[in-house]
Design a protein around this nucleic acid. Structure first.
Length: 877
RNA sequence: GGGAGCUUAGCUCAGCUGGUUCAGAGCACCUGCCUUACAAGCAGGGGGUCACUGGUUCGAACCCAGUAGCUCCCA
């Protein structure tokens, strides 16, 4: 039965994914085996698969598949995140298209639409992960707003409240006037923006001489109505005359104090700073320090309110233009200047963030963060690569309280209740709230629940526990078995707001970190180094990529280009390389499959090849295991790539391959098949489909229903003999030199050449004679006891190989070649001798290093001697 | 402004505690091959002042200091 010349992935992919599912290979239930657990970072329900997910989930799948094959009870828990702000924005937009305004809906009506949307689109990304081959336990799929997970969130809020970590307060928050919600710092993107710096004059009453005004510089003239002071640096002599005076806010003529604080940068602007506590974080802090009044002139949609006195109802940006005109007309505007500065934008709505004071719920972090920091500090939780530790430490040591409320509907509603007097209690239900009010002797009239929901990270922080129902039900079998999980694979940009919070919550509930290793992937960039983004359109569609290069090819492509923690400069060329690799494996298989078998003894070349490859394979497994234990996934892959391509295909198979249309000896055939199986197992975590496809070929005989590569026993490294490997390497070098010679002399590979060997080392070349003959097309080999003349010589180590190329050798060219080699060796020898002549080297360097130098000296001397003799022979000839 | 990190071949990156398995890998490139597993291939080859300057050392890609350029995080 012939099989096609190139590997066609499509059929294999669907077939085997379905089969694995049917057989329940992804399913994990606690048993007596060692667990190996990964919880998937839940993608947003609004998300579609992008290259970042591809990278992230490929790595997780590689880890989980390998663990499964190693006999562990591998459990990979998938799920999605409700992403309150992103999803709410999406639903609002969808409703708008239908002509429905969120404002006209009740909370319940809105949530109905939102759930409908989620049911319809929320599973897309998980379906896409199936294409990638993700071997998750789909029976465990969770959503952060599932009732039991939401419950965990609410319980946690109440728990932390009772422990005194949660409080309400007025704070400066990042306000998104379009989404009309507060955002965490992490949801704000800062961008460099071209702005204008306006120089505005404030009248200063009561100055006898000199100008009767001061000038401030601001990019936000529309906020002057909220000014409650002007601040100068006490050391600034220019303004000494202003001390203790007051200034008048232009246009509205409100009198404000002139205060002094070293915070003011004398160099910047005019050195006079307008202080607007309600609309700037630094000003707010300054205001607190100096007990300034706070005047908030903005509505939650970014328009000016009546406290502004003028321009009421205008949007902040319209008001800016407008007030500039007014200031100019009234003679307050001194000048303007171009200026660039960082402005925050909402990650979700892209509206300019407004620093705004509002009543929010907060979680006190300083104390909670300590154990979470300690886990990383003491190495209980490893960050990979460890360069992130110092960043993490710095962040955790300077952690600020966490704004946990969001002015949204989609999410877990905060379990706080107000009565008509706006007094409040925290309780799970309104009945409990009533009881609490009553216990405190307060009215239960007009009781209503807090409108705000909790930040999404509050629920994802519980994820490694809540997917196992571990907070509500802390003694259940799942949580006891799977927690702490093993590895977490995620992106460095969410190290703090996700990873740190999981550590905090994990410690809070179970006194144990939720995972042992955190593998931080890089950001997927295009080959120009730009972050892949929808707006740039520089991101390939992963699904199309998989169709084009095969899933295995894309998986290999992703991992080839991604050392841990480094950004990955993605290029489809990597996928092409992956596809080519799959094809290589496929064709190696075709070769073996095409062999006829004869009941005959194996040849010497076949036996030596098998002997060598056995050692080489064990050596490679050791290397690969080493790479995995250091989470060097792309190095592990490259080691496999080279093992398969170079060692297995280019050397092993070429050596055992029978002559054209000749059968292969039974023994060699069986050995080859078992090597092939072993190789397929190594490949499987990276290339699950082609490995499974070939695993089931009739070549390997009948397989039982559950005899699958996905659950085959992962190769364990065995012993390997360095001497055997070294001897074989000499053989390889001889072959390579002969091929090189053919190339240089334009001798076809089809022309057989005779060779004589004069070997004085302990390598037994007789043993490899047949191998050399086969790989270098040598017609006959003779072993001689001295030098040969009239033929071309090759030196490998101190052994000499004479090839009769059946043509007059070019004496001059040979002389030059040998002389060059001697020159090189002499240079080398000189440097070695210089070291050995240096007393301080001999005294200070470690003995083994000195010994090594002596060996190098001896080796070089022997080689030079041989070459010089050969040179003489040539001249004599 | 504060913190972290990077700079090695055309590209993407390895290089552990300083000492020829120290200048490496893959891809790309060049040369020769349509050899009956594979041209998505085979065989061979070229290519780097290890950012720059100085220091420590018997010895530096590696350690230290400074300079330049780049990236990320926080303000």
């Amino acid at each position: 039965m012939s099989i096609s010349k190139t590997y066609d992935p499509k059929e294999a992919e669907d077939k085997w994914y379905t089969y694995w599912m049917q057989q329940g290979f992804f399913r994990s239930i606690p048993d007596e085996r060692e667990p190996y657990t990964i919880v998937m970072p839940p993608p947003n329900v609004t998300g579609v698969l992008h290259m970042g997910h591809m990278l992230n989930n490929t790595i997780q799948d590689v880890l989980i598949r390998r663990a499964r094959m190693q006999g562990k009870n591998a459990c990979w828990v998938p799920g999605t995140d409700h992403a309150s702000i992103a999803t709410e924005a999406k639903v609002v937009a969808m409703l708008k298209e239908k002509g429905i305004n969120k404002k006209d809906l009740s909370r319940e009506q809105f949530l109905e639409y939102a759930w409908e949307w989620k049911e319809k689109y929320g599973g897309i990304i998980l379906k896409q992960l199936e294409k990638l081959g993700a071997s998750c336990d789909w029976n465990r799929t969770k959503f952060t707003m599932n009732p039991e997970l939401s419950d965990a969130v609410i319980d946690t809020f109440i728990r932390l409240y009772r422990e005194g970590y949660i409080y309400r307060g007025v704070r400066m928050v990042n306000w998104d006037p379009q989404g009309r919600t507060a955002l965490s710092d992490e949801e704000v993107n800062r961008k460099e923006v071209n702005q204008t710096l306006y120089y505005i004059r404030y009248a200063v009453p009561g100055i006898d001489d000199g100008p009767t005004y001061l000038t401030i510089a601001t990019t936000r003239p529309e906020t002057i109505m909220a000014d409650t002071a002007v601040c100068i640096n006490p050391n600034d002599e220019r303004y000494a005359h202003l001390k203790g005076k007051t200034a008048l806010v232009p246009l509205i003529n409100r009198e404000i104090p002139i205060i002094e604080d070293e915070y003011v940068d004398v160099e910047f602007g005019t050195g006079c700073l307008k202080v607007t506590p309600a609309h700037d974080l630094n000003d707010y802090e300054l205001g607190q320090k100096h007990n300034l009044e706070v005047i908030d002139i903005l509505n939650d949609d970014g328009t000016l309110n009546e406290k502004a006195q003028i321009l009421v109802g205008e949007d902040r940006f319209a008001a800016r233009k407008h007030i500039v005109k007014l200031l100019e007309e009234a003679g307050y505007l001194e000048k303007t200047e171009a200026y660039t500065s960082q402005v925050g934008f909402s990650e979700r709505t892209d509206a300019a963030i407004e620093p705004r004071l509002s009543m929010q719920w907060f979680c006190r972090m300083a104390e909670l963060a300590k154990p979470a920091l300690e886990y990383v500090n003491n190495g209980e939780v490893k960050l990979i690569p460890d360069k992130f530790i110092s960043t993490y430490r710095h962040w955790m040591e300077n952690i600020k309280d966490w704004t946990i409320s969001r002015q949204l509907w989609w999410g877990q509603r905060i379990p706080a209740w107000y009565n008509a007097q706006n007094e409040w209690v925290v309780a799970k239900t309104s009945d409990e709230a009533k009881a609490l009010f009553q216990a405190e002797g307060k009215s239960t009239e007009g009781i209503r629940q807090e409108d705000d929901v909790l930040d999404t990270w509050f629920s994802s922080g519980l994820w490694p526990m809540s997917v196992f129902d571990g907070t509500r039900n802390p003694d259940n079998a799942d949580i006891r078995y799977y927690y702490p999980t093993n590895d977490l694979v995620t992106a460095p940009e969410i190290l703090f707001f996700w990873v740190a919070r999981m550590l905090i919550f994990g410690h809070e509930y179970r006194g144990k970190a939720p995972f042992k290793n955190v593998y931080l992937t890089g950001i997927v960039r295009d080959k120009l180094g730009r972050k892949m983004s929808k707006s740039l359109g520089n991101s390939p569609d992963p699904i199309e990529l998989m169709q084009q290069y095969g899933t295995d090819g894309v998986r290999v492509g992703m991992l080839l280009s991604s050392p841990a923690g480094n950004d990955l400069m993605f290029d489809v060329a990597y996928c092409e390389q992956g596809r080519n690799f799959a094809n290589k494996i496929w064709n190696a298989f075709r070769l073996v499959k095409g062999w006829e078998v004869a009941e005959a003894p194996a040849s010497s070349a076949q036996r030596e090849a098998a002997n060598w490859f056995g050692h080489r394979f064990n050596q490679a497994v050791a290397e690969i295991d080493g790479h995995f234990s250091n989470y060097r996934i792309s190095d592990a892959l490259m080691a496999i790539y080279k093992l398969v391509w170079d060692d297995f295909c280019s050397w092993y198979l070429e050596l055992v391959k029978p002559a054209y249309q000749q059968p292969i000896a039974r023994e060699a055939f069986e050995t080859t098949k078992s090597f092939f199986e072993a190789v397929l197992k190594l490949i499987h975590p990276f290339m699950p489909f082609i490995s499974e496809e070939l695993w089931h070929d009739e070549l390997f005989g009948q397989r039982s229903e559950r005899d699958c590569c996905i659950v085959a026993e992962y190769p364990k490294g065995g012993v390997f003999d360095e001497k055997e490997l070294g001897d074989f390497a000499s053989l390889q070098q001889v072959v390579s030199e002969i091929r090189n010679l053919r190339n240089a002399k334009q001798i076809s590979t089809k022309t057989p050449l005779p060779m004589a060997i004069y070997a004085t080392s302990d390598t037994d070349f007789a043993r490899y004679a047949e191998c050399i003959q086969k790989m270098a097309n040598i017609s006959e080999i003779s072993f001689i006891d001295g030098k040969q003349t009239g033929t071309t010589s090759i030196l490998v180590g101190k052994d000499e190989f004479y090839i009769d190329i059946a043509q007059n050798i070019d004496v001059e060219a040979e002389k030059e070649r040998i002389s060059k080699e001697i020159d090189y060796l002499n240079g080398f020898l000189k440097s070695v001798n210089a070291k050995l002549a240096n007393e301080r080297f001999v005294q200070n360097a470690k003995p083994e290093i000195v010994a090594n130098e002596r060996n190098k000296k001896a080796d070089a001397e022997i080689k030079i001697k041989i070459l010089q003799e050969n040179l003489l022979n040539l001249t004599g000839f």
